[in-house]
């Protein structure tokens, strides 16, 4: 006798069609344009902060990330995504929580010394660059309309990627508090894209693996 859970497949949890989902993303992007550019500018500030040792810059970076999570929660998860996925009321709450945690992290960056580990730092910056600059081009290889592009601050996946990169690059304490929500989101997103048979599913998987790899490197 098979256990009941064993009778479920990934596709059983998908409650909308890829067509509906990507149309939703496209309409959202069209409605926001060119606001995406504002966030890209903000994200460049985060990158700059990571590259310098300035504490103010790092505090500003955390604040920018916090705004990005709040914006994704409110505009995408709550107002858009939750119309086709009731689980997004929980997603919204988790994103709001992460936004709050990132604000708190402003305090922690002040006290924290940068991780001495330079490989980890460079890797984190790499992850951020990936989230910022590579993510919007994903539709090209996934064979989707360019309007379904995901960009930092407006869509969850690149926001999570940039956040994870920034955290491993320059937060040395309380990481255990800030990493779970972005990592869980990436896992959720990867599984959703996989269930939709979208080629873009590899991206959040890579983000998770890279984050863990960077956390493990010692030097």
């Amino acid at each position: 006798m098979m256990a009941e859970w064993a009778t479920y497949t990934l596709a059983d949890f998908l409650m909308f069609s890829p067509r509906v989902y990507f149309r939703l993303v496209e309409r959202y992007n069209q409605g926001l344009w060119p606001f995406q550019l504002v966030f890209i500018a903000g994200a460049l500030a985060v990158l700059f902060a990571t590259a310098t040792d300035g504490r103010r810059a790092r505090a500003a970076a955390m604040a920018t990330l916090s705004v990005a999570w709040f914006f994704c929660a409110w505009q995408f998860l709550w107002l858009r995504y939750s119309t086709i996925n009731w689980a997004m009321s929980y997603g919204t709450a988790a994103f709001m929580l992460q936004s709050g945690l990132l604000l708190l992290a402003i305090l922690w960056t002040d006290r924290a010394a940068l991780p001495a580990n330079s490989l980890r730092r460079r890797g984190g910056i790499g992850l951020m660059v990936f989230g910022l600059l590579a993510y919007p081009f994903l539709p090209l290889i996934a064979g989707r309309a360019p309007a379904s592009a995901e960009s930092f601050g407006t869509m969850p996946d690149p926001t999570a990627a940039v956040t994870l990169g920034a955290l491993v690059a320059f937060l040395s304490q309380k990481l255990w508090l800030l990493l779970p929500i972005p990592l869980l989101w990436c896992a959720f997103s990867a599984l959703t894209l996989l269930a939709m048979e979208d080629f873009g599913a590899w991206a959040p998987f890579v983000v998770i693996l890279t984050t863990f790899a960077l956390l493990l490197v010692r030097r």
Partner: peptide, 13 residues
């Protein structure tokens, strides 16, 4: 109506 009618507020769909 599972999946097929879950179209959110997309007026075209």
């Amino acid at each position: 109506t599972w999946i097929t009618f879950n179209v959110g507020d997309d007026s075209v769909l």
